[in-house]
Design a protein around this nucleic acid. Sequence first.
DNA 1: CGAGTTGTTGAAATGACTCAATGTTAGTGG
DNA 2: CCACTAACATTGAGTCATTTCAACAACTCG
Lengths: 240, 240
Amino acid sequence: MSTHLSDQELLAYMANNTMFANLNQPLLETLLSVATLKKFESNQIILRQGEKAEFLFMLVVGRAKLTQLTADGTQILIRYIGPGQEGGTTSLLPGTLHPMTVQTMDKGAMLMWPQAVLADFIPNHPQIAINALQLLAQRNSELQRRYQELLTECVAQRLAHALLRLVTQAGHVVAEGVLIDLPLSREDLAQMAGTTLYTVSRTLSFWEQAGLIESGRQRILIKKVEELEALTTNSYNGSI
Amino acid sequence: MSTHLSDQELLAYMANNTMFANLNQPLLETLLSVATLKKFESNQIILRQGEKAEFLFMLVVGRAKLTQLTADGTQILIRYIGPGQEGGTTSLLPGTLHPMTVQTMDKGAMLMWPQAVLADFIPNHPQIAINALQLLAQRNSELQRRYQELLTECVAQRLAHALLRLVTQAGHVVAEGVLIDLPLSREDLAQMAGTTLYTVSRTLSFWEQAGLIESGRQRILIKKVEELEALTTNSYNGSI
DNA sequence: CGAGTTGTTGAAATGACTCAATGTTAGTGG
DNA sequence: CCACTAACATTGAGTCATTTCAACAACTCG
């Protein structure tokens, strides 16, 4: 995919994102006109956790990884984002800090809105604030769900949940099942499920033997999505 | 405390809550005029998890407990709220469901705003939406912090964190330290820290022997807050 | 005073982590 | 095109924190 996009395409991405939902076309165009299109290279850090939140962004080409570093230095992986998905939502509120680091995975481009510019739109277009509210409410409920998982589920269930989330976010249907279209290492999965790369490796091996998945280096193919779903609810945990 | 309050007092509670911050006095009064003051008994369920979110509320007398039930039936304790604290924040967005159950602990009273009424204020007073955004952003970052805790810390550290949160929320300074003014059972603490009542009991016994706390039936007095804080950061975990 | 709730504590079981050794794959430069 | 290297993955053995189960002790309330 080229990093050159028409305004048409950019507007389409915006219209499909909750952040810009229910806004009329002229307003979308105005918002686009105050945005900056910034290109980025692979493996570049866009936002660093702890820095002042100065802008909202939306990827239009390429992918990025959202991570958090805990006080003791453990890195956790929040989620992956792709074209049409936004980040830095808290930037609407002046004086906040970025809760996570955003790191690009490919060469790509994004639209950027400075905090002050966007905030100026709210008095006349409160829908923007409502949209942001909607977005934050979604994030909140997803986080709540993950918090619950962590509190009550065993590693195998959490890993199954993490894979299922990846399926809906980055799953491509192929002949034998669903392929997760991301360069995922065991370490990445461990950071998502809150465990170690060793336990991930063991669990995936077990599932591979059971015919649920097929995994190789940085590659995961899920052959039986329903059975993986069953693992998340069942009391049976696919441990070794 | 009586369950009878003047408009003065109600307005003061509102003005101090982030939800109604930066609103002028006339607007606060208008908002109060569209609210309903509802009295409740002890141990009454105000909102049930999964029900349609139909109103925002703010306690003015009494306390309540916010809990969540996970898919497998485990109950988790999110937090306690008291006078001046709100709940049902997601009610600003039409069509959402309550993410948690709210249960009263004492006889008391609260102000209630139906979703539709509040939503009507936003077009002319976008500050309300911004306030809600602020509130959700706070909740979000607190949840993130707790998610991280769960992911990286051991039980003793999580329990220490839970106690410290309770200190700031419901701590009363007394001669010997800080008394947590809530009828907290070991089971309650276990639900907050994501562990079992047995481990809570063991850990508290250990801390009691170390002179950090003093705990009895439904009663916890923290004698050395700083040392408890040290436990949360240190690599040393106060295990048995 | 008795019944039910709440808290304590020991012993055994266990899930997950750590460490260490080894295998596998992709990419690089000769 | 092959050998080399670094990154990624697997697996076993040992260890540890935490849970589970069970028995008992203490407190509260009608």
